[in-house]
Write a protein that binds this DNA or RNA. Structure first.
Lengths: 323, 323
DNA sequence: CGGCCGTTTGAGCCACATCAACCGGGGTGG
DNA sequence: CCACCCCGGTTGATGTGGCTCAAACGGCCG
């Protein structure tokens, strides 16, 4: 596999060079090999974008995000760069200086679909942020059944709580091919001493995920299967579209088995409920594509309040109040 | 009601004086009035103990906990003082100086059974710690059913996450008479700037509660009613006995309706499962008294790992590593 | 004494699980 | 190139855990 390239010692220009070589190679190949090469190219370009962004944000603050976007747009890696920026600036709301510090010691790693990122019961050796793809946190019982307790989308942190609790009994793995920024826990702890905003950001992440879990808990405990499923789809749609215009279709390669583990149902039943929602023309999820036909009515059956995820504003206000 | 006495301006001696007056009065009364008077006396004595503790811990660190315990023991309020100390030193693991700072601006309030402590959707105006009694966090759905997403025992913080997220959609209420220490959010934020350990402590509390919620989530999603119920009882028993010798009976005035809301069941079914556990001679819960007959077998059916709550050690280690 | 709240017990029902079979597509091996 | 298989989705038949409704019981308080 290609998880580790000697990326650290190369200039952004070199990285771009390597990436375009891969792309050239890819066009002459087929199937899995082609996919692998393209993936590798993306990773290289992503890393190059990150380097450039790092160089450009060293002293400045917010204005140059614009610059960076144009810069990377010019070099044709708009989408990855945008996700990358989203990853660090969305909910954590870190000052640019702190983002820079964090990134300077972060490792970018790629995980294949299904690969595990953090093992169950592992001592928290490092802290992870998801830049691209999707991941899940799973708790497995002795009887073999499992429950997904969190779903992570680009911009989420994977294990903020483990940093302070030491260990946890959940495993984290990639749903779809994922790009993950990792920082060693030791280094992070050093940073936290000098940068209180970083501690607050991680705390906020922990609280944010706890809030979602509470919502899931009441869903699993008290709502009907249809309502739960609808709610989950609403939630994911909202979380993926922060800062973007509302779009009614998005990529979501979740298997029905995954949905079952998220919602605490059997996959057979997920299928039936999904079909029912389809037949009611509310939403469709097939071939890894989520399409929302009737947002209002969907919110209705889900008892979904789009504002419940809208912490970010309130949180940023609270945080500004603190500093 | 007697929620607000002008406690702040009185000396510990005066408070004690007032308390013993109440007790004297109580002995000549009956029923509810008597209970109220005793409660008030406890509150006053508790506050007096806190004042003394504050005066004695100002400069010193750990050794004088001993002193304080003896001191308060001498004045016959051992149990309350112990709980009070537990409240601040157990899991939050705050340095004594920080505890002192926190307490100096804290208000002690009493809540009657069923009284609400934090309203749903309320902007987080203050931060609460539970010293005595028990409380629950409830999420209510439109259809009227509700789910309890957290149970709080002495020593727990009630709303650590709200401080950083701003607001939440859960309500917190007492389910037995509760003594709560409250600090205004504004003051707390000031403290946090100067005392990083405090921020970490609150973050840890948030993460701790999130970990419990994950466990509940997998229970509600994937376990049988019996296993869930058993697990909850194990959890509560463990959480209430930190630092004490193992005891097989403890006070737990939970109604079956409460249990139902915690476990996502109907109270009728809770009853049946409870009876089944009783008939298997594993546990008994009646008249507000929880008795564990067969710990091992109970852990078995609950799939309960007593270590899963044992974060405190690991957490303190992690925290020491950080400072 | 009568109401109220929590517990207990029974009867019937429904949402969802389980088991089992089939289908369609993409990758793999011959 | 086909044969195959494995995986994910779909569909049906059947079983059951837990819900709902309803009524009786017991203790507490006014």
């Amino acid at each position: 596999m290609l998880h580790r390239l000697s990326i650290q010692n190369r200039s952004p220009r070199e990285l771009r060079q390597l990436a375009s070589e891969r792309r050239g190679l890819a066009s002459s190949k087929e199937g899995r090999l082609k996919a692998l090469l393209i993936m590798e190219a993306e990773l290289l370009e992503f890393h190059a974008g990150m380097r450039i962004w790092l160089e450009h944000t060293a002293p400045l603050d917010p204005g140059d995000l614009q610059v960076v976007q144009e810069q990377t747009q010019a070099t044709a890696q708009l989408s990855l760069a945008r996700l990358f920026l989203a990853a660090l600036s969305r909910r954590m709301a870190l000052p640019a200086a702190d983002q820079h510090a964090l990134l300077s010691v972060a490792q970018l790693r790629h995980f294949a679909k299904g690969e595990t990122i953090v093992d169950e019961g592992e001592q928290a050796g490092s802290f992870h942020m998801l830049c691209h793809g999707a991941a899940r946190a799973t708790r497995t019982l002795e009887n073999g059944s499992q429950q997904i307790v969190s779903v992570f989308l680009p911009g989420d942190t994977l294990n903020p709580g483990d940093l302070i609790l030491g260990r946890s009994r959940i495993a984290i793995s990639a749903f779809m091919p994922a790009l993950v920024l990792s920082v060693s826990a030791a280094e992070l702890r050093l940073f936290m001493e000098q940068r209180p905003a970083l501690t607050r950001a991680l705390w906020r992440e922990t609280a944010f995920q706890a809030a979602i879990q509470r919502e899931w808990l009441t869903g699993v405990g008290r709502k009907t299967a249809e309502s739960r499923l609808a709610h989950f789809l609403c939630e994911v749609a909202c979380r993926m579209q922060i800062g973007e215009q509302e779009c009614n279709a998005l990529e979501l390669p979740l298997t029905q088995r995954d949905l079952a583990d998220i919602l605490g149902l059997s996959c057979v039943h997920v299928n039936r409920v999904l079909q029912h929602l389809r037949s009611r023309k509310l939403v469709d999820l097939s071939k890894g594509q989520l399409i929302i036909w009737n947002r209002e009515e969907l919110y209705e059956v889900a008892e979904f309040d789009p504002e419940y995820l809208g912490f970010s504003d309130a949180a940023q206000r609270a945080d500004r109040g603190a500093s």
